[in-house]
Amino acid sequence: MRLMIAQTNPLWAEPAANLKALESLCRLAAEAKVDLLALPELAFTGYNIFERLDSLAEPADGLIVTEVAKLADKYNLHLLFGFAEQGADGEFSNSALLLDDNGQHLGTYHKRHLWGRESEFFVAGKQSCVVDTRFGKLGLMICYDNEFPEVARELAQAGAEIILSPTANMLPNAERQVLQIRARAMDNQCFVACINRSGVEETLHYCGNSIVAGPDGEVLGRLGLAAGTLIVDIDLACIDESRTHQDYLKDLRVLKDNHAFNGANS
């Protein structure tokens, strides 16, 4: 699979303008024969929109998803992006949505680990998301989920070969982010891609450094602080090659009783 990461610097609270800018990215991806174009967390509104959710959040069949689906179909691209979703019950979710190259919905993931003020506005997701595609099984997580090894492990145990994480991570966390993504990939012997954003929103300075890591934790591609794109070719055969040396998922032993310790004090 040929993956393009778009590390964007979206205009704050301007979804129409950000959607318009997406077409040039799609055109660039199509010219490069990309299979999947991935964008950051809350890609079309900006991240720091908590007090504006009533006007900026949309249902899964709203304008943002509809327009992105048209571009997916037009340019024959799978598209992944984060958006603020308003459910039928009126509650808000920090979501990531995957479309196929006909613009059809493949899966939606609701962020489970809410960071900082997010928990005041968003409802935490309750389910993981692994989608079977012709490129392999894709698992989804979002930003703060990266920092919990259990999330990537759950996705890998469900068969995910490539884990994609739309992100809006901030300075001074660039190297921390890179380390976490490499560790999530190595621990689960799969591919992990973090699609972060760049730019500034008031006091929030985003750290960029989007990265794709391979099954042995190797860096396959990495961006810097500024907005830009990154194309990485992913070969799933590398997963089997990694697991011939040691297979962590197969060899993992989980204690059924967390209180079953050995030692003098047990």
Rank of each mutant, 00 (worst) to 15 (best):
E58H: 06
Y144S: 13
G125Y: 06
L53Y: 05
V219T: 13
K137L: 07
G139E: 02
A29H: 09
G159S: 05
R52V: 00
G90F: 05
Q157D: 09
V232K: 02
N102L: 13
L22K: 04
Q177S: 14
G224C: 11
E150C: 08
P149V: 06
L25S: 01
S95Q: 08
N146K: 08
L99C: 07
H113C: 07
G103N: 06
H245M: 13
E85P: 01
R153F: 11
N196A: 07
L223G: 04
Q7G: 05
V192E: 07
H259T: 10
G221K: 08
R243N: 09
A260F: 09
F83S: 01
S55R: 14
Y47E: 09
A13Y: 05
D251A: 15
A237M: 04
N173T: 11
F121L: 01
E150F: 13
R253T: 14
L97A: 02
L39N: 00
M186Q: 11
I181V: 15
E201R: 04
A43L: 07
E241K: 15
H78I: 02
R222V: 12
L19I: 14
A124G: 08
A264H: 11
I163H: 04
C129F: 05
V131G: 01
M186S: 12
A168G: 12
R184V: 04
I162Y: 05
S55A: 15
H110I: 07
K20C: 10
T229E: 05
Q189D: 11
S242N: 05
D89I: 06
A60Y: 04
K33S: 11
Q189E: 14
E67M: 08
A13M: 13
D233T: 11
R176A: 12
L225G: 05
Q246E: 15
E31N: 07
I234D: 04
L63H: 10
I162F: 11
G125S: 02
L37P: 03
I181Y: 07
A160P: 03
F50Q: 10
G221D: 13
L80P: 01
M4A: 08
P149C: 02
W12M: 03
F148L: 14
I49A: 01
Y47H: 14
Q86D: 03
R222W: 04
Y75C: 00
W115E: 10
E150N: 08
R197V: 03
G139V: 01
M4K: 06
L236T: 11
E161G: 06
S95W: 10
Q180Y: 15
V68E: 04
K74F: 08
G90A: 00
E14S: 09
L255C: 03
L42H: 05
V232R: 00
T167M: 13
A168W: 09
R117L: 10
G136K: 01
I5P: 01
D187W: 07
D54R: 03
E85N: 09
L63R: 14
E23I: 07
K250D: 12
E175H: 13
